Simulated assay, not measured.
Amino acid sequence: MEYKHLGRTGLTVSRLCLGTMNFTWTTEKPDAFKLMDAAHAHGINFFDTANRYGRPAWGDTESLIGEWFSLGGARRHKTVLATKLYGLMGDWPNDGKLSALNIRRALDASLKRLKTDYIDLYQFHHIDRDTPWDEIWRAMEVAVQQGKILYAGSSNFAGWHIAKAQGVARSRNFMGLVSEQSIYNLIERNLELEVLPACQDFGLGVIPWSPLHGGLLGGVLRKQNQGIRRLEGRAAETLEALRPRIERYEAFCDELGHEPGDVALAWLLHQPGVTGPIIGPRTSEQLEASVRALDLTLDATALSRLDEIFPGRKTAPEDYAW
């Protein structure tokens, strides 16, 4: 396993982050436990979850992870644990977003479900346009002083949100954000406009989610032809709109002699500022496939070919002006 510091911190995390959104949804507890054990066996020490993940109830995924931690074997010690807050967890006022009150309540609830006394990376799942950053950072400062969290991160922020958050944090002599979790893959490259440059400038590690764009970069056409993948609704519409590019992509992966999903993950690992993509395997075989990408090196010619198939964005404002 390869490791990297998370942004400007001294925190060392694996180049792949285990995403747990499928746990209790498409992955039942026994299989989830096996996946987390297998992740540790591969050296993956970075796990991501959120307080809204889980079925049939929000929070069930955190509770499942807490049960796994309680099995012992230094499971918690070996895990850099990241979770998130923002979404409503109830139908009463202050049951969501980033008020000081909800940060306190949501954090304590996550700690209880996760059966731990601290969270390594506590992330804002979305920008809260109604709460001032002075209030947010004051609540986070208290949580850090209490030893309940170590680092703060963001998710789905715009570049100017990151800049504003860091400006206020600096005025309070607080570390502020250390990471940003956003959608980023060969198909969806808008992050390159302003978010990625902002993260690099402020020293935030980038944690891409949906690295295979819902499976469209995972050999979807081949799987359809084999009868093992069927898309409906918006996913099918997206595939039809992108079919010429995906056909070229899968053909190029065949030229390289690598699976499309491996190439998509390897491409992300080659991008400046990226700490590690979030993988969401449902089976041990899918986990093994993700780990393969760490051994795949893409040369300048291959990276250029991928840019031709899925053009990226220039840094703003050069992307749309001089």
Rank of each mutant, 00 (worst) to 15 (best):
E28V: 10
L114K: 12
N190D: 08
R55D: 10
L81Q: 04
F157T: 01
I44E: 07
L71C: 06
A321H: 04
N94M: 15
D91K: 12
G215V: 12
N156A: 15
R104N: 09
R8W: 12
G276A: 06
L71D: 13
S179H: 04
L35E: 07
F47Y: 08
E232L: 03
N173H: 15
K314R: 15
R229T: 04
P277G: 10
T61F: 01
Q271T: 06
H213Y: 15
A106E: 10
A139W: 01
K223D: 01
L287K: 08
I65S: 01
W137A: 02
R229Y: 06
P244C: 00
W68C: 02
F47M: 09
I44L: 12
T61Q: 04
K115W: 05
L64P: 02
R189H: 13
R313C: 11
M175Q: 14
S182A: 13
W92F: 15
A109S: 04
L216I: 10
A57T: 05
E285G: 12
G73A: 09
T283K: 10
G219I: 08
G87C: 13
V142C: 05
G215R: 00
D37P: 14
D31V: 09
L217N: 03
A139T: 00
A266D: 08
S63V: 00
K112P: 01
L268G: 07
G96S: 12
A321C: 07
D319S: 10
K97Y: 11
D117E: 15
L287Q: 07
V206E: 01
N225D: 13
G312T: 14
F33K: 07
K84R: 05
Y86K: 02
L107D: 03
V168P: 08
D130L: 13
H42L: 01
E2G: 11
L191I: 15
Q123W: 01
F23G: 02
G203C: 10
E247G: 01
P272Q: 11
L88V: 06
K314M: 14
L186T: 05
P311R: 09
R105E: 11
E62N: 05
T27C: 09
D60K: 00
V220F: 00
E288P: 07
S110R: 06
